[in-house]
Amino acid sequence: MIVYGTKIKSDIDFPLNLSRETATCYELELSAKVPDEIKRSITSGFQIYSAHGRNVYFYSDRPFDGSEIGQPWCYEVKDVVRFYWRGGEEIIYYELDEKGDADLLSFWFIHLLLPLYFTLEEKYDFLHAGAVEVEGKPILFIAPSMGGKSTMTDYFIKQGHTLVSDDKVPTFIKDSKFMAVGSFPYHRPYRKFEDLGYHVDNFTTDFKPIHAFYVLESVDGNAEISFEEIKGFEKFDRLLPNYLFMFSYLKPKRLKYLSNMLNTIKVFRVQVPWDMERLGEVHDAICQHSEGIV
């Protein structure tokens, strides 16, 4: 299977319809054969967050102030699964707990563990956004929680646009361009715990330069649909909260990355009437606007 532009060899069958024909940057193995020495080397940790009704913990053999070659890691979803790996290696181990099964393993591995792993390994930088293609060019939707990002992404998919990412967009630099990487061919327009959503047939197969960012702002249902280019520091201010995993030791490098990205990619504020009946108008307006960007 291929997710996040990575070919993954696994000793467990994922109960998902995942792409085998998309472009790849990396290869990774997922194995149940956890080496005992990794378990023994884990000495410290903390609760990293609560998500999807679960408590999630993060462990290593030292205070969390960086990621080094050979450093052991453990990501634990309480009562469900633990993932182990060593820094610089391309194999992740898993250990199912009493409430774990293949479905839950698939969800946590794909949706939450891999973005964290790729960030720690400094392979991708992730943006919290929905992303689709318009005329073959990736555009990213940015919005606060419950701000319409998933609704907009869902509508574009249903109009035949290619899905790039439902929620987390991996990015990297190639030939001085900031590339968007397809995440996985599932979309979750609703908020059901531990569920990737519905399968999307029209999923991106290659890495393409990000064309534009659209910051969605809800307005009265009778208001006009309008666009305004965001410039200067406000661009940074809008995107920074949607830059995932801003770990302290990575912060200087990642702030530079984001600054360079925003120096080359335009950001637009689009006022979206809060009326589902007008989504078609919004879709048409964004498509027309995107096609006019040079």
Results as ranks from 00 to 15, higher is better:
residue 121 E to T: 02
residue 74 C to D: 03
residue 114 L to T: 05
residue 181 V to N: 04
residue 86 R to C: 13
residue 83 F to E: 04
residue 163 L to S: 02
residue 138 P to S: 09
residue 84 Y to P: 00
residue 182 G to S: 10
residue 130 G to R: 04
residue 90 E to I: 07
residue 96 L to P: 02
residue 129 A to D: 08
residue 170 P to D: 02
residue 158 K to C: 11
residue 96 L to K: 07
residue 177 K to V: 12
residue 160 G to M: 09
residue 65 D to E: 15
residue 66 G to R: 02
residue 121 E to M: 11
residue 115 P to A: 08
residue 135 E to S: 14
residue 61 D to F: 06
residue 69 I to D: 14
residue 180 A to M: 04
residue 138 P to H: 05
residue 88 G to N: 06
residue 130 G to Q: 07
residue 116 L to A: 11
residue 121 E to Q: 13
residue 146 M to G: 15
residue 93 Y to S: 09
residue 185 P to V: 00
residue 149 K to I: 08
residue 184 F to M: 02
residue 169 V to M: 08
residue 99 K to Y: 14
residue 71 Q to A: 09
residue 118 F to Y: 12
residue 165 S to C: 14
residue 136 G to V: 06
residue 142 I to H: 04
residue 66 G to Q: 05
residue 172 F to H: 09
residue 181 V to P: 03
residue 130 G to F: 06
residue 154 D to Q: 10
residue 95 E to Y: 09
residue 97 D to S: 14
residue 137 K to R: 15
residue 188 R to P: 10
residue 157 I to T: 04
residue 132 V to C: 10
residue 164 V to E: 01
residue 124 Y to M: 10
residue 81 V to I: 14
residue 152 M to H: 01
residue 68 E to L: 14
residue 76 E to M: 11
residue 175 D to V: 11
residue 139 I to C: 00
residue 62 R to W: 10
residue 129 A to L: 07
residue 128 H to R: 07
residue 161 H to T: 00
residue 182 G to L: 03
residue 137 K to H: 12
residue 99 K to A: 13
residue 186 Y to K: 03
residue 132 V to L: 10
residue 82 R to A: 08
residue 131 A to M: 09
residue 101 D to H: 12
residue 180 A to K: 05
residue 154 D to N: 15
residue 184 F to A: 05
residue 129 A to N: 09
residue 137 K to T: 09
residue 183 S to D: 07
residue 99 K to D: 15
residue 125 D to N: 15
residue 148 G to C: 04
residue 83 F to R: 02
residue 104 L to H: 12
residue 133 E to Q: 13
residue 170 P to V: 07
residue 142 I to L: 14
residue 147 G to E: 03
residue 180 A to I: 03
residue 65 D to I: 12
residue 104 L to W: 12
residue 75 Y to T: 03
residue 62 R to T: 12
residue 132 V to E: 02
residue 105 L to G: 00
residue 110 I to A: 05
residue 126 F to P: 01
residue 172 F to A: 05
residue 115 P to D: 06
residue 162 T to W: 05
residue 79 D to F: 13
residue 176 S to G: 12
residue 152 M to V: 10
residue 71 Q to N: 09
residue 115 P to L: 03
residue 105 L to S: 00
residue 97 D to Y: 15
residue 160 G to Y: 07
residue 107 F to N: 02
residue 64 F to P: 06
residue 66 G to T: 00
residue 119 T to C: 09
residue 181 V to S: 01
residue 86 R to G: 10
residue 108 W to H: 11
residue 164 V to H: 01
